[in-house]
Design a protein around this nucleic acid. Sequence first.
RNA 1: GGGGCUGUGGUGUAGCCUGGUCUAGCAUCCGAGCCUUGGGAGCUCGAGACCCCGGUUCGAAUCCGGGCAGCCCCA
Length: 488
Amino acid sequence: MEKQQNIKQKLPDKFSNFSEWYQQLILRSGLADYSSVSGCIVYRPLAYAIWEKIMQEVDKRFKQLGIKNCYFPLFIPEKLFEKEAEHIAGFKPEVAWVTHAGDTKLAERLAVRPTSEAIMYASYSKWIRSWRDLPLKLNQWNNVVRWEFKHPVPFLRGREFLWNEGHNAYATEKEAMEDLWKILNIYKDVCENILALYGIVGKKTELEKFAGAVSSYAIEFLLPNGKAAQGPDAHFDGENFAKAYDICFLDQQQQKRYVQQITYAISTRMIGVMVAIHSDNHGLVLPPKVAPTKIVIIPIFDKQTKQNVLDYAKQVKSELVKLLSNSDSDAIIIDDREQYTPGYKFNEYELKGVPVRIEIGMRDIEQESVTVFRRDTLERFTIKLSQLSKIKELLDEIQKNLFEKAKQFLLSNVVTVNNIDELKQAIANKKMAKANFCCTKECEQNIAEQLEAITPRVIALDEKPNENDKCIFCGKKAQAVVYFARSY
RNA sequence: GGGGCUGUGGUGUAGCCUGGUCUAGCAUCCGAGCCUUGGGAGCUCGAGACCCCGGUUCGAAUCCGGGCAGCCCCA
């Protein structure tokens, strides 16, 4: 473990002072640090390890779907970028441009990718000729730059972030949509079963959908400060990009047709969402499946007992390594530093979110037991050495408990509202509000102008308005049930 | 997009209003040593800071302007 600064200062309170709490937690737990570039953070090893875990889990599932990884250039020539009108309109305000090489001005400036449709589809246009070339399912794990002007929040809003961008092309809309749902379910699976997060899967409204897409789907999360954060998403582009970038093929009837496309992404924003939802005033709380260190063993000894205790600790560690069949050097660690007291170490690992702590001193040795502390509930108890296998169950239990808590948090903070006043009230109470909505672009624009920062997050997929229900904004016939919240 | 607040060693802060006593205080962190170890131990010694540029003034951490950075509120 790296040295930590500031470890003796308490965190601000999560619920009364969320922003301060979040910011200090990120810095002090060693997840990330600010860099010399405003809006760009450093992902320190702890954060990067979590990101690696997300990548592994998603990637494994992508490969089962036949998605292949590749890499396209960071730069996009301006003319290429401008081909799809809505796409460029959506992204241009926050594109960073490369204009010079040394002191020489470039003939055509290059966009630093905010997303890679343009550069990838120029290749797709060359590669796809026949129905035999389809489907084409390519993904890249990369970085993108979007020069935001709102103030940055580590992980949740930054100018450069890491993500996957998948770009699939199909002969038919039916195939495209089938895969879109499989991919959304992969993201949902990883969010729920790895990150222990519960979100709402829904369809984006007209103004909130991806620039250039026909329709967008996303998983929305609610943070403890009442703001919603969009998690992984998937977009159906229809033929929009295919027409702009001339991606077509000859079908079995020898008809020239445009491909049907989908795109999908999950980003490092999920690290921020996860941290914000699970962690507490002691520090990070990491689900065992993402925590790079799952168990920390703290030996407690003095000069006389040192050797005994350390030997016992090593024995416990090697049994745990076997038990978890995890040989990562970080997965189970013994902290035998002598210059720090046990109390100091307890606080340190709570700050860093290690799921399980095992304390071993003479008392435990005499009783052939170990003292166990679980990070999620802050409970401490003793188990016999012969019962060490229970630790594995405990890790599963913690994982499950975090998910259930996250699910409860979201479900208990969604309220149904019947008019604008109730909506405002719900948002003021840090809730997500569910309301009947006409889903017209005009009405949505009015909301954006009149309701301050309240935006429609997603259209519910499992719920429809009744026959006579009206839109709570304009009073016209309701088309859908929509979730509203303040947004990150 | 608009308004407000803030910027002092690595970190958190005192000082700023009312310029001089600031050779900038405290805590933590960092280095050396002793001593300790079941919830952030103790002692000794050492190292370390006024965001940047300009202005006012005999004199600026302190006042003024601009820049940069961070935070909050509102659109």
